[in-house]
Amino acid sequence: MQILAFDTAARACSAALLDGDRVLAERLCEMERGQAEVLIGLVQDVLATAGTCFAKIDRLATTLGPGSFTGLRVGLATARGIALAARLPVVGVTSFEAVANGVASSERKGRRVLVALDTKRRDFYAQLFDEALHPLDPGGVLSLEACAGMARSGPLLVVGDGAPLLRDAFTHNAEMCDADACDIRWSKAPGHPQAVVIARLAATRAPTADLRPIYLRPPEAKRPKA
C-alpha cells in the first residue's frame, strides 16, 4: 500500500511516500513559516523522485495537531483538496503520537515518554505516554511547573521541540527539578513530526471520517468587532 504523508504543524514542512515499510522518497524543509508556499512543491518533488503519481497512491496521511494554527490549516486544506481530486482516503495523526513514535525503543526502555511541543508562550502542548507509547493522558496545555511534576514522579524521557526549553529551565532552576528528585533524560529523536512516521502510523489505521484540527486553545488573532 502506497501512502503519501506530510506535516506542516511544526517548525518544518515535510513529505514522504512509503510503499509498505519501504521509503520511496522523503523531503524535509525546516522553517518557521511559509509552509503554504512550500508544501505542494515538496509533495510534487516526492512523487517525481518516486516515479509515481496520485493515481497510484492508496491513501494520504497528515497531522491533526496541535501545532501552528496556520500550519495546521495548510496541511489539512491540502489533504482535503488532494483527497477530493484524487478520491483518496485520509488518515489523521496527532502531533503527539507522531513525535512519540519517532523515539527509538532503546531510548524508551523503562521510562515514560513526555512529548513537549513549544507553544511559543510560557507553556507547552504536552502528552504523556508509557514505554510502549500508549497514552497516559489525553494531552493538553501544561505549565513548566506541571511538566516538572511529571519529571519528579518517575523515570522520564522528554522529546519534542519544547524539550530544549524545558531542559534550559530545569538547568537554571534546580529547585524545580534537581538531579536528586528527577530521573529525566532528553531524547535524541527529532522534535517535530516526521512524515515517514506519520505514514507508518496511517498504515495501521482506518481512514479518518472527519478531519478536524486539534488546537487545544483559541487562536491569538481575533476578528475585529463590528
Rank of each mutant, 00 (worst) to 15 (best):
E97F: 00
A83P: 10
K56T: 13
G140F: 01
G102V: 04
P218M: 08
A86N: 11
D58A: 13
A86D: 11
R27F: 02
R111S: 10
G191R: 12
G139H: 07
C177Q: 01
R112F: 03
P193A: 11
E175Y: 00
V90K: 06
P135H: 07
F54Q: 14
Q35P: 02
P164I: 05
P207C: 10
A79N: 10
A116N: 05
A174R: 13
L165H: 11
I40T: 14
Y125I: 02
A179R: 14
R73C: 02
G20E: 13
A83R: 12
H192G: 00
D168I: 00
H172R: 12
E145G: 00
L128P: 09
E37M: 08
L166T: 04
A25F: 01
V99H: 06
A9C: 09
D7R: 03
A202D: 13
P164T: 08
S187C: 10
A169C: 01
Q44T: 04
L128H: 09
P224I: 08
D7W: 06
G92H: 10
A16V: 06
A48H: 12
I198P: 03
D7N: 15
A163P: 11
E107L: 04
Y125P: 00
A15T: 05
C53L: 00
G154S: 09
G191A: 11
V46E: 01
A10I: 01
R108T: 11
L17E: 04
A179K: 09
L201D: 12
K120W: 02
R87W: 01
